[in-house]
Simulated assay, not measured.
Amino acid sequence: MSDDGIGTVGAATAAVSAVDVWKVYGSGEAQVTALAGITTRFEKGRFTAIMGPSGSGKSTLMHCLAGLDTVSRGMIHIGETPLTGMNDTQLTKLRRSKIGFIFQQFNLLPTLTAEENMLLPLSIAGRKADPAWFETIVTTVGLKDRLHHRPTQLSGGQQQRVACARALLARPDVIFADEPTGNLDSRAGADVLAFLRNSVHDHGQTIIMVTHDPVAASYADHVVFLADGRMVDELSAPTADAVLDKLKHLDLPENQPDTEPVR
């Protein structure tokens, strides 16, 4: 995120960038503006959390940034690659090579072992895991003795760590995490968040996480805040208390229209 303020885009290539991004559903009286002209960048090798009240557009923004949803107007880039205008086949190839995903639901195949679940995306892409990198990731998530266990034989925290390892093994340019600790107890959630933070600081991974939890956001390097589809604030080196205080005082920019016709 640029230090010049919300919505600025610098010259250096970011891991992910958005320029004047709008997402509008429906038309006429039924029109709903989910994103209203967001311009921002997510720096490489940083852990960024996206926060905001329910309905603020944070999940919509993540889905658009990751190419899971299309924008109504504006441009999104993964590195120097523009997502806007790509067809489904192009988006699928880009997601396989450049993007990793971690969701609230672990999305593990029950018939596969932990190791097989970790390696599945690479297998689908016709790639082999780097043995040294595989060893590093498995050691980092603390699952060396669980590789041959199926999901039903793992705790919720262990299943989510398998999902984290799966996302990291392909060495994507960026990992998107949508409420990754939403189904975990506080201890398991802390383990997963510490792993994500360490993967950024120790291995240079880029992570963009949507969360509603100030404690989860405190593991990030930077937090951006959305309200009514706009970026309204940001915070570096966050603490849980500082994040909570920001959430309590979110205000929309003054004199800004609620919607704008999509051209």
Rank of each mutant, 00 (worst) to 15 (best):
M1H: 09
S2W: 04
G5P: 00
A11R: 11
A14R: 06
A18T: 05
Y25K: 00
G26Y: 13
L35G: 00
T40Q: 14
E43N: 12
E43I: 10
F47W: 06
G57L: 02
L61K: 02
H63P: 00
T70Y: 12
V71I: 12
S72R: 02
S72Y: 05
G74D: 01
I76G: 02
I76K: 05
E80D: 15
T84C: 00
L91G: 02
S97V: 03
G100M: 02
L112F: 14
L119T: 13
L120I: 05
P121E: 10
S123M: 12
G126L: 07
G126R: 01
G126P: 06
D130P: 08
E135S: 15
D145H: 08
D145S: 09
R150T: 13
L154Q: 00
S155M: 07
R161E: 07
C164D: 03
A165F: 14
L169C: 11
D173F: 07
D178Y: 15
E179F: 09
L184D: 02
L184F: 13
D185G: 10
H203K: 04
V215E: 13
A217E: 07
S218W: 04
V224S: 01
F225N: 04
A227W: 02
R230E: 01
R230I: 02
L235Y: 05
S236H: 13
D245W: 12
D245P: 01
D258N: 10
T259V: 10
